[in-house]
Design a binder for these strands. Structure first.
Lengths: 118, 118
DNA sequence: CTAGTTCCTCGACATATGTCAAGGGCAGTG
DNA sequence: CACTGCCCTTGACATATGTCGAGGAACTAG
């Protein structure tokens, strides 16, 4: 990955086919890789697990920052990555923004990688 | 990920628990993140798909390099990443090294992320 | 032995990434 | 209005990452 990054919008369904079912196209490989990249960080794994554990109500930036001992700027950065990958959904409520996990998107990504799927 | 990289050996089983089942420990988050990082690259996704598509016999470096239009050095680098993450197993045979996918490891990783698992 | 494969390692380079401090924009409150 | 809390953006920095060319080690073929 020497060159330009994606600038791709990550929203599509992305069902089962990819990696285990025959050779993957460049485009599909990129799609999957981008979503994985969004997840491939210990902080973001913890963030996701916190968000998942907090039900569908959602969690706020500050709370996560306090929990993980990070700056709100840093947490905002990570939440942005996850949101742009479609793994989190942010809903503004007054001054606060609540982040919730998109279980469907996460499930789709997982299934795209599952060697036992399909 | 500002600081030191892992130097962790990635071989353990890593079954279901992690991300969807309550808050994840720092260690677990790191384990999962490292394996995901090994996968979070379009080239490596394509590599894995090629290897998976080639059955258990395994594929050689050169063939993959030709297929992906990359240097053997680059492919070697990527294969190393995947191997160190435990997702590929390399078996030397004379002058050639055959790489095969470890479906169990891949499955374990996938299940660790599956929000519908367990 | 010589020549050709195959693979890996090393060094170098450009680019991407994670983190923070600083600062600004909103929303709610006194 | 002023003040506080929350969130995001920007700029800066160190570090990590992907890619290649060059070269060496180990095996194979002639």
């Amino acid at each position: 990955m020497p060159k330009s990054l994606p600038a791709i919008e990550l929203s599509g369904a992305l069902c089962c086919p990819p990696v285990a079912a025959g050779v993957v196209s460049d485009a599909d490989a990129l799609e999957v890789a981008l979503r994985l990249k969004a997840l491939a960080d210990p902080v973001r794994i913890k963030l996701l697990s916190f968000v998942l554990a907090s039900g569908s109500g959602g969690v706020r930036n500050v709370d996560l920052a306090r929990e993980l001992h990070l700056t709100d700027a840093t947490v905002s950065h990570h939440l942005g990555q996850l949101s742009r990958a479609g793994l989190l959904v942010a809903t503004r409520q007054g001054a606060s923004t609540y982040y919730a996990a998109d279980r469907v998107a996460l499930g789709a990504l997982v299934r795209a990688l599952d060697p036992d799927c399909c």
